[in-house]
Amino acid sequence: MTTTPATTPSLTAPAATPGLSFGQAVRLIAEREILTRLRSRAFQVSTGIMLLAALAGVIAAGTLGGRTSTTSVAVVGDVAAVQQASGLAVRHVGSVAEATALVRAGTVDAAVVADRSSPAGIRIIADESSPDALVAALSVKPQVTLLDPPTIPPGLRYAAAFGFALIFLMSSATFGGTIAQSVVEEKQTRIVEILISAISTRTLLTGKILGNSLLAFAQVVVTGAFAVIGLSVTGESATLSLLGAPIAWFVIFFVIGFVLLASMFAAAASLVSRQEDIQATVTPVTMLVMIPYFLVIFFHDNSLVLTIMSYVPFSAAVGMPLRIFLSEAAWWEPLLSLLILLAGTVGVIVAAAKIYGNALLRTGAKISVREALRSSGVD
C-alpha cells in the first residue's frame, strides 16, 4: 500500500481564525491540550496516585529510617559490656535460674550472665537460636578511620538518585505518550486536516509541546512540594537543606529536557496513522526515557557514569542534579551541561518539526524517518 498525501476537506475555519498571530494560535492550541488533559479522569487519577505515592514514600522512609530495633535482655551480675552496648532493653535479675525462666517464657529475647570461665567474661543464654543482634551489640568493634569519608550516606544517595530518575521517567513517559496519542488521534479522525487549514504544522506542534510541557512542569513542581512536605513532617530538615539546590536545577533541566523528548514523541507519532501502531514507533523514544532510570539504579555510586549522564542531553536532567546533590560537580559544569542540552534541544526541534510537517497529512502505511526528512510536506 502506497502512502499518499491526504486531500484537504472542504471545511474551512472561521474567517477570523486565519488572522490569528503565531503567538495567539500557539496559546489556543496549548490551552486546548491543557484543558483536554485536565478533564481526563485517567490523568486526574494517575496524578493523584503519583503525588500520594511521593508523599507516602518520603514519610515512610523517614519513619522507618528513624526506627531502631531493640533486643530485650535479662542480665545477671555486673556486665560492663551490656552497659556499653546500644539497642538493648536491659532487665536486671538476681539469678541465672530466674534469667533462664524469663528466656523460656519468651519474656526476654536472651540472657547475659557474667562468667569468668569464658574468654569473653560473659555467657549468653537463648532459647532456640543464637541471638545474632545481641552478639553483634556485645562484640568489641575496632575504630575505623576513613581517609575520604562520604559526605552523603549511601542510603540517602540511592534515595535521591531513585527519586530524580523516577520523577523524570514517569512525567516524561506519561506526557510524551499523551502527545503521541493526541497526534495519531487527530490524524486518524482527520481533525488535523481542519486544523492545518487554519494554522501551520509548526504552530500546531509548538502548541502541543508548550501545553504538555506546562502540565509536566506543574506536575514536577507539585510532586516536589509534596516531597518537601514529607521531609518536613518527618523532621528531615538536614536532608531538605541538601536537596534545595539540586531540586531547583532538576526543574530547570527537566523543562528543557522534556521539550526535547516531547518533540521526539510528536515526530515519531506523526509517522503512523493508527493508534495500534503508536507503541512500535515511539519505543525508541521511550527507551531514551528509561535509560537514565536504569543507569542511576545500577550505577548511582559510579562517578564516571554519572558524569557522562550529566552531559548527554536526554539524561542530563537526572545526572547533573544528582551530581550537584553529591557535591561532585564544579560550579561551571551545570552551566556547560545546560548549554549542551539547549543546543541538542534546538537541533531536535528543527528535525522533529520537519518530520512532523512532512508526515502529518500522510495516511496509510508507516512512514520512515528518512522518507519524512526527504519529502516535502506542509508548512
Rank of each mutant, 00 (worst) to 15 (best):
Gly57Ala: 12
Thr47Glu: 01
Leu38Val: 14
Ser72Asn: 10
Arg27Gln: 08
Ser40Val: 04
Ser72Trp: 05
Ser40His: 08
Leu35Glu: 03
Thr70Gln: 14
Leu55Trp: 00
Leu20Glu: 08
Thr63Glu: 10
Leu28Tyr: 04
Gly65Ser: 06
Gln24Thr: 12
Ala56Asn: 01
Ile59Cys: 11
Ala54Pro: 02
Arg32Met: 07
Val45Met: 07
Leu38Thr: 10
Thr36Glu: 09
Ile59Thr: 10
Ala54Leu: 11
Arg32Asp: 12
Met50Trp: 06
Arg41Phe: 11
Ala53Leu: 13
Gln24His: 11
Phe22Ser: 06
Gln44Val: 15
Arg27Trp: 13
Val58Arg: 05
Arg67Val: 12
Ala42Tyr: 01
Ala54Gly: 06
Glu33Met: 04
Leu55Glu: 05
Gly48Asp: 00
Ile59Asn: 01
Gly65Asn: 08
Leu55Asn: 08
Gln44Asp: 00
Gly65Ile: 03
Leu52Gly: 08
Thr63Cys: 10
Gly57Phe: 10
Thr36Asn: 07
Leu64Ser: 10
Arg32Gly: 12
Ile29Ser: 08
Thr63Arg: 10
Ser69Phe: 13
Ser21Asp: 06
Met50Cys: 06
Gly65Val: 05
Ser69Lys: 12
Leu64Arg: 03
Leu35Arg: 13
Gly66Ala: 09
Ser40Lys: 07
Val45Gln: 02
Phe43Arg: 02
Gly23Ala: 12
Leu35Asp: 10
Ala53Arg: 01
Ala60Asp: 06
Thr68Trp: 02
Ala56Leu: 14
Thr63Ile: 15
Ser69Thr: 14
Thr71Phe: 07
Ser69Gln: 15
Ala25Lys: 11
Ser21Arg: 12
Glu31Asp: 12
Ala30Pro: 08
Ala54Met: 14
Gly65Tyr: 02
Arg41Leu: 14
Ala56Arg: 04
Leu55Gln: 03
Ala30Asn: 05
Leu64Ile: 13
Ser21Asn: 06
Thr63Pro: 01
